[in-house]
């Protein structure tokens, strides 16, 4: 039964991926891409990687889907025509992709089962029960610190696409929601539920599935719903509080790492006694920054024109 389920999932993933890249218009490609993200999330769940599954569903399918649909809507408003089909470029790309897939497939059969380092003996010193959280915020904290800064760099890159004349304008397109319409009702109904769920994901992340990235994504979605239904005003780059919220997570993370150095330990080290409270503090700060960054990444640079859903 489980084998049949796995096989069906594999076939679905391959089929949806193919449908997404093989012609047939941009809208179809976007919809299939979102479906693809959901199926991949299910595959991660089947593999037992629940944290990855949550992140894939939230970011790979959810936020990326919103981003692609918004971009599609903008292209339509601009009456952009799709570029002429150039098979000359597609064929080499398809061959390269197929060759890479074959090589990786060969490696799967040729390589022995991976033997990751044994975390058992060191887990008690990590301060948390969830291995993923222990790796992300303790054993390989330097990676996570840099990744949280990568998000900021991405947002800066998006902001640099604005026109100089629009620089002081509110970020993102102007959304119009009909008073009393579906979107406006959603804008009041969804945020409280989403807030509770997002906060729960962060809190639970210390000892079971969840964490700053997953919780932050849910909170970002809450912010987006509030923005799109005009419950919340779009922010501006010039707002100091906004910029402070964006750097809060990396700043707290860096401070924690440097404090460890100042008190005689290694950079980013955590004493087992203090590990849990410090990790939770960092996670809360990271969640806020991740949520704000992701929401702002989706709405885009300032002066993006009108947008009526």
């Amino acid at each position: 039964m489980t084998l049949a389920l796995d096989l069906a999932l594999c076939v679905l993933i391959l089929g949806v991926a193919l449908a997404s890249v093989a012609g047939g218009g941009v809208f179809r490609a976007v919809i299939f891409f979102i479906t693809y993200g959901l199926f991949v999330a299910m595959a991660w769940a089947r593999l037992g990687a629940l944290d990855v599954a949550l992140a894939e569903a939230a970011i790979g399918a959810g936020l990326t889907g919103v981003l692609l649909l918004a971009a599609l809507g903008r292209l339509r408003r601009m009456n952009a025509t799709s570029p002429p089909h150039r098979t000359g470029l597609h064929l080499p790309a398809a061959f390269a992709g197929a060759a890479l897939a074959c090589a990786l497939g060969w490696a799967w059969f040729a390589l022995p089962a991976p033997s990751p380092p044994d975390l058992g003996p060191v887990m008690p010193q990590s301060g948390v029960g969830n291995r993923v959280t222990a790796v992300l915020l303790n054993f390989r904290a330097w990676d996570t610190l840099l990744e949280s800064i990568v998000l900021l760099a991405a947002l800066l890159g998006v902001w640099m696409l604005a026109q100089d004349k629009d620089w002081t304008a509110p970020l993102g397109p102007r959304y119009h929601a009909q008073a009393g319409g579906v979107l406006a009702s959603f804008g009041r109904l969804l945020p409280p539920v989403g807030l509770a769920f997002g906060v729960y994901l962060v809190w639970a992340g210390a000892d079971s599935t969840g964490g700053a990235f997953q919780g932050g994504t849910v909170l970002a979605a809450v912010g987006l719903v509030a923005l799109m239904s005009n419950v919340m005003r779009p922010p501006r780059v010039s707002q100091g509080v906004l910029r402070a919220a964006l750097v809060l997570g990396p700043a707290v993370f860096l401070c924690a790492g440097l404090l460890a150095t100042a008190s005689g330990g290694a950079f980013l080290s955590l004493s087992p006694a203090l590990a849990k409270p410090v990790i939770l503090t960092i996670e809360v700060a990271l969640t806020i920054s991740i949520a704000v960054t992701l929401a702002l990444l989706v709405i885009g640079a300032s002066g993006d024109g009108e947008y009526a859903p």
Partner: peptide, 28 residues
């Protein structure tokens, strides 16, 4: 090796944004 990947991503994103900085259509 993975930490190098994260570092490379940060380099690439910052570099792409720097390349777009002049704001012309060509630069984008």
């Amino acid at each position: 090796l993975f930490n190098l990947y994260v570092g490379l991503e940060l380099i690439s994103l910052a570099a792409v944004a720097l390349a777009a900085l002049s704001g012309t259509a060509q630069a984008f």
